[in-house]
Design a protein around this nucleic acid. Structure first.
Lengths: 240, 240
DNA sequence: GGCTCATTTCGGCCGGCGCCGAACGATCGT
DNA sequence: ACGATCGTTCGGCGCCGGCCGAAATGAGCC
């Protein structure tokens, strides 16, 4: 069967040594920082976690060897990023707690869009925060997404993504990664769209200039162009 | 929002200390053993993991305090089991490696049912092994399950579960737990049905005497009654 | 070449924790 | 009431591994 698993865990000791990668405060902080989906240098991570550069080196070595991170050397810098969406997903699952799929669409009562969109950010490669939740909810209201019993893309949703948003149909074929997947944002305590569709949506929003990154972190803000686009595509009015 | 998360993790040290619960060979072995969904006594787990009873006591205390396990004291016995399906799911995710949703239904080519059903077992609260995979595949072939881009129950599938199998419709309402969910069995390297529907299906099969537990472990075998039932319900013929 | 800066390697320190055995407590069966 | 069984508490041992600082490496930049 396909390639080989990045982290093929079967025995108890394999499972233990895998968990041990996260079971350190400093390494956990590194993983959480890397959830922004971008590549950090070793020095940045050392400063961010408050340890000496030499200590960070050791941690990064373990994380790369363990398959959680991949590295990219450029000149005198060593960039690391999460090895892939599935790693990000797993860390999210662990960080978000044990609760999978809580009360899904219940109480989906519309918060006003202006309030809902005020704080947005990216979560690995998809939209999160109030923005992510608002978009997810709007898609559900429009019948593009089905939240009853796990996330699923409706036929209308597929059309909306391709014809409406311009996502290539090829990218929405089933593959290693789930087409749609819920991701629990633990600041909002609400589900938002992840998976391939979530990533494509985020990519498109950024590419079209509908949302723009704020500063160097994970935060994003909605642009004027984004306001009109969201209105046209999702009836999300009264946007901040 | 609802109760409170069993393991509300937000900071790096919370994440680390949570992962540390699994990051020990003995505790990992305990969790894997408990994946059968049943309650074990402290002594059984001590013997199974090969440590002294006193050592097992310490580990179990940590796992219970950490929210991974719940305990049930009966007389001089202390039974522990996984705290819930979401805990089981998370351990599965970690144990199965990082790869979520690999090539889903691809190569769903029918292995003969007799071969497919030879080795069955339960995985927490649903069917796994060749039996679980065979049932999942058969359901997919019949259009009861949609494996394109994540698992989803089709309208036909819902009817099949309720009218055909006698599962109460009430139980299939969206709740905290996903209605359907794929679970990767790492011996078969194939996806099989988990989530509420998977648990209900397994429960019904056991209740109807279609499968029976073998010995004291996770293994199950199909009964003669099960053979006819699977033929009638899923066209799964040539059963072992 | 010489300087700077990001990163790495090496030693050594120290705390945490997994392990056991022995003694104690609690419960069941007779 | 009595031994047998299951579980827990307590001390003590030993090792793994995270931390740092100092020195070494290697890539850019004059």
């Amino acid at each position: 069967m396909s390639p080989t698993y990045s982290v093929p865990v079967t025995s108890a000791s394999d499972l233990a040594s895998f968990a041990a990668l996260i079971a350190d405060r400093t390494r956990a902080a590194m993983c959480l920082a890397l959830l922004d989906g971008r590549a950090w240098t070793a020095g940045e991570l050392a400063a961010h976690t408050g340890v000496a550069p030499s200590t960070a080196t050791g941690h990064l070595h373990r994380l790369v060897t363990g398959g959680l991170l991949v590295e990219l050397r450029q000149g005198r810098h060593r960039y690391v990023r999460l090895a892939g969406p599935s790693v990000a997903q797993l860390i999210e699952d662990m960080a978000g707690g044990i609760a999978h799929r809580p009360a899904p669409a219940r109480g989906l009562r519309a918060v006003t869009a202006s309030e809902a969109l005020r704080r947005g950010r990216t979560c690995y490669d998809h939209l999160a925060g109030r923005l992510g939740v608002a978009v997810t909810d709007a898609m559900t209201r429009r019948g593009l997404l089905d939240q009853a019993g796990g996330f699923a893309l409706t036929p209308d949703g597929r059309i909306w993504l391709t014809a409406g948003l311009g996502v290539e149909a090829e990218r929405l074929r089933p593959g290693r990664r789930a087409l749609v997947r819920g991701c629990l944002d633990w600041t909002e305590r609400r589900w938002h769209l992840a998976g391939v569709a979530g990533a494509e949506l985020c990519r498109t929003f950024l590419a079209n200039g509908w949302v723009a990154r704020v500063g160097t972190g994970r935060a994003v803000r909605i642009t004027p162009a984004g306001t009109t686009a969201l209105d046209a595509l999702l009836d999300l009015t009264d946007v901040d």
